[in-house]
Amino acid sequence: MLSILYVILTILGSIIGFTVAPLVDGIERKIRAKIQNRIGPPLIQTWLDIAKLLRKESLIPRTAKALFIIAPAIALAMNIAALPLLYYGAPNVLGFYGDIILILYLVVGSSLILSLGAAASGNPYATIGFSRKISLLIACELVVALSIATAILKTGSLSLTEVILRTGIAPSMIIAGIALLIVTYIESLRLPFELTEAKPEIMGGIFVEYSGRLLAFAELSHILHRFVMTLLSLDILIAPLLKLVFGVSIMGVLMSFIILMLISILVLIVYGAIESLCGRTRIDRALIFTARLMILPIISLILASIGV
């Protein structure tokens, strides 16, 4: 009985994640507009954008390679595949031993394939966007990998559910979670780290040649990626605490499900508000910042190895 609830919650969480992530983007835009003394677009604007793009023609430059066309779809598929593997407050029955590694692959792979596809368009702006994204990706994913390595080291398990269920309140996990949360901000390409699109500099960067459906897929997978990353870092940071407080009874998992979803939406909104107060930085500065961030997961790794 309980395991059916677990499955339902996981699927429900995935569906909510899929629908709400673009809505949250709309809320962000609304908040940004309010900070700028404007009315702003309707909340469902991002969905409207995607719906429109799906109905438009896709142009493919002659110079483009096949990867250009399949990359957005693959990236979207990878992000959708990552959704039901995450922890939504209930033990993830769909999970399996080693799923944490798969999540890592999907998260890194989706942004990698998107930028590879952009580079395959043969457009110099996209190429610059690609080179920036790769530099940023290497720095960021190192932090992600180290943080997840902390979790694995601390609990000795390769399953996300087991990692969460086994840890209590551990300083190493909290530090790793914080590092993940910060790196989520950088990796979701928000200002001041919005370097790969940077409209005034490289006019949309990696997205420059995409149009129509391909752009819709690329946009959607970009937005989903934000959600997946946010939820993953909250899984490491907050889920063990929720499990301690509420347990795994029916009411407990429902409560932790709701709280986890609300917090992840809240985090996304707060990120959106921070974004509107920032200007764009330069790639060299962004890399230095990310490199400094590396100290956090290293500390957490050391702590985890001594068992704290």
Partner: peptide, 14 residues
Amino acid sequence: LIKDLDHNYVKRTS
């Protein structure tokens, strides 16, 4: 971007 914008270089496709 000027390159590729010539209609000869673009495939309109579904």
